[in-house]
């Protein structure tokens, strides 16, 4: 079973995020970066499948700056077999279509059975790239899965995904793309030998030229959508604390909800 996981390096969830002075990006000073948590579910699921089948090869792939190599090493440390780091100055400002095209070009070289993505990257919260890649590779996909079972004949899988008020159970033929949601599994920590071995595992760096992608088909100039302005969310201010004993406070609350907020 050959499995790939596309991962993105993002600011850690607990980071304080604020827009940079020009409002075109976030202020990156002092931020620490991690593997997108939803992508970690993908890595863990790949490891579980490999363990369950007793064979397999797991490739982690990421597009990003030099720093992204750290995220790939983290994945190698928990058990992925090889990493591909796609890095090219021309990719600056690319939109999801361009990123998906680049990932597709890299994935197509690998002859894969399963490709995992996160359900969304917690920086842009977009949730598009995995589904785009599936379409570009002409593969079926199931998004936001929280359970996956590979059927013994190995050519099919059954995935669960949560919808409003229920769970969809979806059967899909492999090769296929899955985007991962919380609850799929509990990502493991890297073991110490794992961390040390990660240094020796192959991490190849590819440029657009290596993938035979024209630089003028990606980047900011060719994006169909661009980030215009970042701002902090409107601040909510503390409203009225309701005074009096419990009865008084409750009746005041009900009055305000009816007359002021008009929600009752």
């Amino acid at each position: 079973m050959k499995i790939a996981v596309c991962i993105k390096q993002v600011p850690a969830t607990e980071s304080k995020i604020k827009p940079a002075a020009d409002g075109k990006d976030i202020d990156r000073t002092g931020l620490s970066f991690v593997v997108n948590p939803y992508d970690e579910f993908g890595v863990e699921e790949a490891l579980k499948i490999k363990e369950q089948l007793g064979e397999g090869r797991i490739t982690v792939i990421s597009i990003g700056s030099d720093k992204t190599a750290e995220a790939l090493r983290t994945c190698l440390a928990v058990g992925a077999d090889q990493a591909i780091h796609i890095k090219d100055a021309a990719l600056e400002g690319s939109d999801a279509h361009a990123l998906a095209r680049v990932l597709t070009a890299a994935l197509q070289r690998e002859n894969l059975d399963i490709i995992f993505f996160g359900k969304q990257a917690i920086d842009d919260d977009s949730g598009a790239v995995g589904i785009y890649v599936a379409e570009m590779m002409n593969l079926p996909h199931v998004s936001a899965i929280n359970k996956l079972e590979i059927l013994s004949d190995e050519n099919r899988a059954v995935a669960h995904r949560q919808i409003e008020g229920g769970t969809e159970i979806i059967e899909v033929s492999l090769p296929a793309v899955f985007t991962c949601q919380k609850e799929l599994n509990e990502p493991r920590y890297a073991s110490l030998p794992g961390i040390m071995k990660a240094k020796q595992k192959p991490l190849s760096v590819l440029s657009l030229a290596d993938l035979e992608i024209a630089p003028d088909s990606v980047g900011l100039d060719n994006a169909v959508i661009t980030l215009d302005q970042l701002s902090p969310p409107p601040t909510r201010t503390a409203g009225t604390p309701l005074e009096g004993n419990a009865e008084e406070a409750v009746s005041e609350l009900v009055r305000l909800l009816r007359e002021e907020a008009k929600v009752l």
């Binding site: 976030i26 917690i122 169909v224 661009t226 969310p233």
Partner: peptide
């Protein structure tokens, strides 16, 4: 279209502009 959408788990509100 210019769309307003939350990013970074709601810690940022962004506007994004369609180019086509």
């Amino acid at each position: 279209i210019t769309a307003t959408r939350p990013m970074y788990g709601g810690k940022i509100i962004s506007t994004v502009k369609c180019r086509t």
